[in-house]
């Protein structure tokens, strides 16, 4: 304390005590405000996106030549029967009106019913969404962990053997289609070294450990593409950042090396990697179709594929709507994360 108040002789600002108290709340508040603004903006952008994408989705059903009335009733139906059936399905109304009605009830949680099984679409989706989400979230976690570990190590050891290996592996992984990765993993971990199940699904209630063992291979195979991209972007971003003056600044202050890399370099170098991760989210959800087929998982991708091949339009529309919703929510979260990471980015366009 004796070293303090050097300037007090010069008669500047009054004691710092009162000011220091409010410092403990001030920055926190602005941080929350920034987050709220970013989240609000992201959601505002999502509204027209939701309208456009659902409209496209709905038009898809309208464009299809599948007439559920004749599909359901079969070839022996009379024209009068078909007309009555069309009325039941609401197909006699103009397309735009049908879209608005569909959107309105979708916003209330009603996605209609399957043309064939008559099971409410919302119910089928609710049954299958947990499967897809757990695989997608698992894949996301694996991608983040693998991508961060290898991206950061490669950046820190620039030009070393690890860096070169990471570069080669990520370039090769970028050429592997998801189904080949899945098959390769099954071949290795279920056939050659049988340690994990080659497919199927058990709910978490059957035991967390068992659930995880069924989840692992699908998640890993779905994550590889994203992990490679994250590692590559993180390596580039961090390699640039590590040459910045503020890294020297942090070193001069005597901060330990791990702290400089994980706090100072990572924060500024992670932007592109986070953005790329955001771009991968739709692929993690959409790519689940492949994984669900190869590993025989009862997920939403499997539901969509079966429904689409059978011409069950309401199911396809509902499943697409839900996936779009998940995508929009996750991209809003990514935007918020980006703003939090790089406040200086506010100045950029």
């Amino acid at each position: 304390m004796t070293t303090l108040n050097v300037r007090d002789a010069a008669g500047r600002v009054a004691g710092p005590t009162a000011a220091a108290d409010s410092a403990s709340t001030g920055p926190v508040l602005t941080a929350i405000a920034r987050t709220v603004v970013a989240l609000g903006r992201a959601l505002l952008i999502a509204v027209p996106v939701l309208l456009v994408s659902t409209f496209i989705t709905f038009m898809l059903g309208g464009l299809t030549e599948q007439d559920p009335a004749s599909l359901v009733l079969g070839d022996s139906a009379t024209p009068a029967d078909v007309a009555r059936m069309r009325e039941v399905f609401g197909l006699d109304k103009p397309l735009l009106l049908r879209y608005l009605l569909w959107l309105w009830s979708a916003l209330h949680g009603d996605l209609g019913s399957s043309w064939f099984s008559k099971i409410p679409v919302a119910q089928s989706i609710a049954e299958r969404l947990p499967v897809s989400l757990s695989v997608a979230v698992g894949a996301l976690l694996i991608a983040v962990v693998l991508g961060c570990v290898f991206g950061i190590l490669a950046a820190v050891r620039q030009g070393g053997w690890l860096d070169r290996t990471v570069t080669v592996v990520t370039s090769v992984l970028a050429t592997v289609p998801g189904f080949i990765a899945a098959i390769a993993l099954i071949t290795v971990f279920s056939l050659l070294v049988p340690v994990l199940p080659s497919g199927g699904w058990v709910p978490p209630s059957a035991g967390l450990w068992k659930w995880a063992s069924f989840l692992l291979l699908p998640s890993v195979s779905l994550s590889l593409d994203a992990a490679a991209d994250v590692a590559r972007q993180l390596r580039t971003g961090m390699a640039d950042t590590l040459h910045e003056n503020y890294i020297v600044g942090a070193q001069v202050r005597g901060l330990p090396g791990w702290r400089i890399v994980l706090v100072h370099a990572l924060r500024n170098g992670a932007g592109p990697a986070v953005a790329v991760l955001g771009m991968h989210v739709p692929r993690l959800i959409g790519g689940a179709v492949i994984v669900e087929t190869v590993f025989a998982l009862p997920g939403i991708g499997d539901l969509t594929k079966t429904a689409a091949l059978g011409g069950d339009v309401p199911v396809v529309q509902g499943a697409l709507l839900v996936t779009i919703g998940v995508v929009l929510i996750s991209s809003a979260l990514v935007n918020v994360l980006l703003v939090k990471l790089r406040p200086a980015a506010r100045r950029e366009i």
Partner: peptide, 21 residues
């Protein structure tokens, strides 16, 4: 946090809490 504001003040910065954030 408290000490940082004190130091900023000691360095002759006006409104140290503002500068802090």
């Amino acid at each position: 946090r408290y000490r940082a504001v004190e130091l900023l003040h000691a360095m002759g910065l006006r409104r140290p809490t503002h500068v802090y954030s």
